[in-house]
Design a protein around this nucleic acid. Structure first.
Length: 814
RNA sequence: GGUCGAGUGGUGGAACUGGCAGACACGUGGGACUCAAAAUCCCAUGCUAGCAAUAGCGUGAGGGUUCAAUUCCCUCCUCGACCACCA
């Protein structure tokens, strides 16, 4: 009898949801387990195989944990604001609200088809006004605590489309839509001060069990360093220049200073407030060209690119050496890093070296590496960050670089030439987007009172439904055109005022969604404290590496902020973070429509069934690996499902008593699955089930008990929910296998009285002997000599030593 | 350039805490069933030599520690992911 997956899937799918067997009760007994998978952006192209992969893993883990007696929360929702929907709506002249509704319904159906055991009663949608009311509320709290401010910041600007672009819309410095190189434009934007939490975000990692690479990614992204800002007088002027450096130990090797084109001194120079004997026009021309380059352009092909620059005619005096250092302007210095001015140490920095060579500036060596090599400096060997010894550096000579850094910092501060400061690579968070399809920023501007938040009682500030969503040619949000929406009254003085027309970035709604699952209908709080105390923190958070720095960091920041205000119960939102891998196309390249190598989950399930698809996804490789899709291997898993079904149908009716061999392999497999499913090693768990099936297929039905069939069915149910349910029903048990408890293994079947151990002679495998589990070395020796083959190998040899590792191996040294 | 990770058969990948390398699957070869094909089932399958028993070699390269190394240490090579003129 052939396994008809279509019939079986149809039979059980609706019953699971009709009877709502996956709903989570807050008060159910059992320890809580909050399992979270990153909620998707519901695009028009439907569920991607990557979604299917990571959601299946979360589903398997949740189902397994439920069977283990945990009260599991496994929710799902929609991160539905965003540009693709907006662009699609513009193109098709439809409402984003409508498109979103369609897409989420499609996603939901596809998820149900794949058998995911989400508790749909807790569904959230970031575009739902009842949801974004609280996203807006969080913003107001940030503003009230001084963590949101308005400032002019450069944005990416497409001169052809005449719109502002998000960073995500700029691909290799070009506009994603039309391919035109982007420019920068200064626009007043809301900024959120995430840097105030930089240290907390590093500290808090100690209270989590994130995998090491995630912790490392966050720490490196924040990148806390001690700098020193040194102020140099400018020769023959009352002006001075302040540089920022983390390596003042190399200051004796400083031979020039370079300024970012946006630097304050450059402006003074161009205005004529500083007089120079250099050609001011050539300076003006260089600065203009450099400033017009986009940020992305300036960061492209960084190392080895020809350095450009222009001399200002000014000199700064190095306190330590008295050397007059020429001040240059160059585009490789970024105004947003440090003070926008760098002291050039060409002996020990690759970029400074390239610059010095380009413009024939002196190169002085002040550090030797551990090999003591003093040959001519090349790019390769000139950076010593870990260890090195100072030379040509006066009072620092002979010191290690770390020690020298400390000493010279103290010295410079004592002399009043400079001051230490802590700086981060992490920047404040640009929170404004000049687009329609996002949460309106709930702020009101009044000419006399400035910026004030919308009163909480007025939340949510709903997105007005428009006929046109096109971004405007002024770089303003399309909302700016909706006069009747923009015009409002000042919450402070009651006078005429205008709403903020920018919307929030995508991250805003996804920062805190896991909180809303706990209490998605709550109208007076983000969620009730009781419910949060019952469920938080999230126990396991499954997501992609691309979110390790942005989403995960923003989310932790917002949560820590809410904790400080007493709105959430724990200091960290997520306990464990697991990275899922990537599934490549059959051609071993990343899936993309243009390459035509996209695998659509729906096509696969139609061909082989949901269970085979899920089992294949779990079998394809290690959970965090990069794996290529393989249709042949998929068919292998389908064969496994078919064989499993056939074995049950033919053998179960004749079931008898377990033979010892059957008991042994069954309990070993249960133990393996018990450990494997708990640690996301699903690929090896599926392999063990295959072994078990291969073994049972060869057994007479009378040697297999009904209990074994039952345990096998329960065991596979997390990965293969449909066939498990059907076999459960076939065996005459009551609905549903998914409400059964996990099978127990019996220790006694894991050990045996006798064990076959390999025998090595001088470390080389020569044979095997069977000994009792608690055999002594002497017993083993006797057994070995009773074995003809081994006896022959040892013939005439002088035994020097026998190493016997109990139950593992014997090694005879001759 | 930085950070993290990975190199194992023809392929994807197993191997607990140093203890039989290659589980499981794919692919390939052979066979059964069939008029034939598909499907299914059975056998073989790391490489080299040999009819065979067997022997030698084998986890990116080289060295080391150990009775024993895919696993630990040192040097080097290659690949991947993320980040990047961050001073």
């Amino acid at each position: 009898m052939q396994y008809d997956f279509k019939e079986v899937e149809k039979k059980w799918k609706n019953r699971w949801y009709d009877e709502n067997i996956y709903a989570t009760n807050d008060d159910a007994k059992g320890e809580k387990k909050y399992v979270l998978v990153e909620f998707p952006y519901p695009s028009g192209s439907g569920l991607h195989v990557g979604h299917a992969f990571s959601f299946t893993a979360g589903d398997v883990y949740s189902r397994y944990m439920r069977m283990r007696g945990y009260n599991v929360l496994f929710p799902m929702g929609w991160d539905a604001f965003g540009l693709p929907t907006e662009n699609y709506a513009i193109k098709t002249k439809r409402k984003p609200q409508e498109v979103t509704k369609e897409n989420t319904e499609m996603f939901k159906q596809q998820m149900k088809d794949l058998g995911f055991s989400f508790d749909w009663d807790r569904e959230v949608n970031t575009t739902d006004p009842d949801y974004y009311k609280w996203t807006q509320w969080i913003f107001i709290k940030l503003f009230e605590k001084g963590l949101a401010y308005k400032d002019e910041m450069p944005i990416n600007w497409c001169p052809s489309c005449k719109i502002g672009l998000a960073n995500e819309e700029v691909v290799d410095g070009n506009c994603e839509r039309c391919g035109t190189p982007t420019e920068k434009r200064n626009i007043s934007q809301w900024i959120v001060k995430i840097t105030d939490y930089a240290d907390r975000l590093i500290e808090g990692l100690k209270d989590t069990a994130f995998i090491d690479k995630v912790k490392a990614a966050q720490i490196n992204w924040i990148d806390r360093k001690e700098w020193i800002d040194i102020t140099y007088p400018i020769d023959g002027s009352s002006e001075s220049v302040t540089v920022a450096t983390t390596r003042p130990d190399t200051n004796f090797g400083a031979t020039f200073i370079v300024l970012a084109p946006e630097h304050r001194l450059v402006d003074l120079l161009l205005k004529g407030d500083i007089i120079t004997d250099q050609n001011i026009d050539s300076i003006r021309e260089y600065v203009k060209k450099a400033r017009n380059k986009s940020e992305l352009d300036r960061q492209k092909e960084v190392i080895g690119r020809e350095k450009t620059g222009v001399f200002t005619g000014m000199y700064a005096v190095n306190h330590l050496t008295g050397r007059k250092m020429p001040i240059w302007i160059t585009d490789f210095v970024l105004s947003s890093v440090g003070t926008g001015a760098v002291v050039g140490v060409p002996g020990h920095d690759v970029r400074d070296f390239e610059f010095a060579q380009q413009f024939e500036l002196p190169i002085v060596r002040v550090v030797v590496g551990k090999d003591g090599d003093m040959s001519e400096i090349t790019k390769k060997e000139q950076v010593q960050e870990e260890e090195g010894t100072m030379i040509n550096s006066g009072f620092l000579d002979g010191l290690d670089i770390k020690e020298a850094t400390r000493k010279v910092m103290d010295y410079i501060e004592d002399k009043g030439w400079g001051k230490r400061s802590i700086r981060y690579h992490l920047r404040d968070w640009i929170f404004s987007r000049q687009h329609y399809w996002g949460e309106p920023i709930p702020m009101i501007h009044c000419d006399s009172c400035g910026w004030n938040p919308v009163p909480e009682s007025d939340l949510p500030i709903k997105l007005p439904e428009l006929d046109h969503y096109e971004p405007t040619d002024t770089g303003e949000s399309p909302l700016a055109k909706v006069e009747e929406w923009v015009k409002t009254v000042c919450p402070k003085c009651g006078g005429v005022a205008r709403r903020e027309t920018d919307t929030m970035p995508n991250w805003a709604g996804s920062d805190w969604y896991f909180i809303r699952y706990l209490d998605n209908g709550n109208n007076s709080e983000i969620a009730s404290m009781d419910k949060m105390k019952a469920w938080l923190p999230v126990d396991v958070y499954i997501g992609g590496d691309e979110h390790n720095t942005l989403h995960l960091l923003y989310s932790r920041f917002i949560y820590q902020f809410l904790y400080d205000l007493g709105h959430v119960p724990t200091s960290e939102p997520y306990y464990q973070r697991i990275s899922h891998g990537v599934i490549l196309g059959p051609d071993n390249r990343r899936m993309s429509k243009s390459k035509g190598n996209v695998i659509v989950p729906e096509d696969v399930t139609v061909k082989v069934g949901v269970d085979a698809t899920r089992a294949y996804l779990m079998f394809i490789g290690p959970f965090d690996g990069t794996m290529a899709w393989n249709d042949n291997a998929l068919m292998g898993v389908k064969r496994f499902v078919d064989r499993l079904y056939r074995m049950f149908i033919t053998k179960y009716p004749e079931a008898g008593q377990d033979s010892e061999d059957v008991s042994r392999i069954l309990h070993k497999t249960i133990k393996f699955a018990t450990d494997g499913l708990a640690s996301f090693q699903n690929n090896t768990v599926v392999a063990k089930w295959m072994e078990l099936l291969n073994f049972l297929e060869k057994q007479d039905a009378s040697n297999i008990s009904k209990g074994t069939f039952e345990a096998f069915t329960k065991m596979i149910s997390p990965i293969m929910p449909y066939i498990a349910e059907d076999l459960w029903n076939f065996m005459g048990y009551e609905f549903s296998v998914h409400q059964q408890s996990w099978p127990e293994y019996d220790e006694k079947w894991l050990q045996s009285d006798v064990v076959e151990i390999p025998v090595q002679i001088n470390g080389k495998l020569k044979g095997k002997v069977e000994v009792s589990t608690d055999a002594t070395e002497e017993d083993v020796k006797i057994t070995v000599f009773a074995n003809d083959q081994l006896k022959a190998s040892l013939d005439g040899a002088n035994i020097r030593k026998i190493i016997y590792v109990k139950g593992k191996i014997a090694n005879i040294i001759v």
